[in-house]
Amino acid sequence: MPDRLFLDIVDPWINWSWLSTHVPTILAALQEHLTLTLVALVGGLAISLPLGVAAHRWTTLRLPSLTTFGIFYTIPSISLFALLIPYTGLGAVTAEIPLIGYNVLILLRNILVGLDSVPPDVLDAADGMGYRPLARLIRIELPLALPAIFAGLRVATVSTIGIVTITAVIGLGGLGQLILKGLIESFHTPLVVATVLSIALALVADRGLAGVQRLAVPWSRES
């Protein structure tokens, strides 16, 4: 009997020969995944840090900014991609706008929690030592807010790595592209490889950020 009949639909979960010949494809997908994730995180930080500091300083900004990004955050990514396509086409811009917007909300909330948690005594002491507002912010308040900011960054990272797979629908996707390939061709191997790598990437990034946090904020016991 032949190993595989013409109509044999039994597909092993891992086809090692496909895997060994497609290492470059997998690495390229992984790299695209990392790039999309990094841009979404850096973009999220670039908007949320100044916005968070401003909303902490001028409390009237707080509710409008949290509400705006809260509504944006509630809208599903597939929906935002589809709404943007007529304007920004298929590509990285369409992928990044929603991803960055989601991260702004997560980070903004945590930056505010972090800045709010700085004890008033500490601020008084800093003022008494002659710190100007900007120096106080950079050298006292933001470092004390770091544990909360790191917590937000970790949530944002794990979340982004998952959502990036959905950008496969608009022709990107990183590892999501392999998941889509597995779906279209009913071929298990790329699906399994991409799922395992995506989970591993999220867990490694989460642990890695926890490690960086321990180094950056040695006084915090929060892991």
């Binding site: 794990v158 959905i166 009913s186 799922t195």
Partner: peptide, 17 residues
């Protein structure tokens, strides 16, 4: 925490397969 690291898109496609 491990559960939320699993991409939703992957869960759907695996369930379908």
């Amino acid at each position: 925490n491990i559960g939320r690291a699993v991409p939703s898109f992957a869960i759907l496609v695996i369930a379908f397969q």
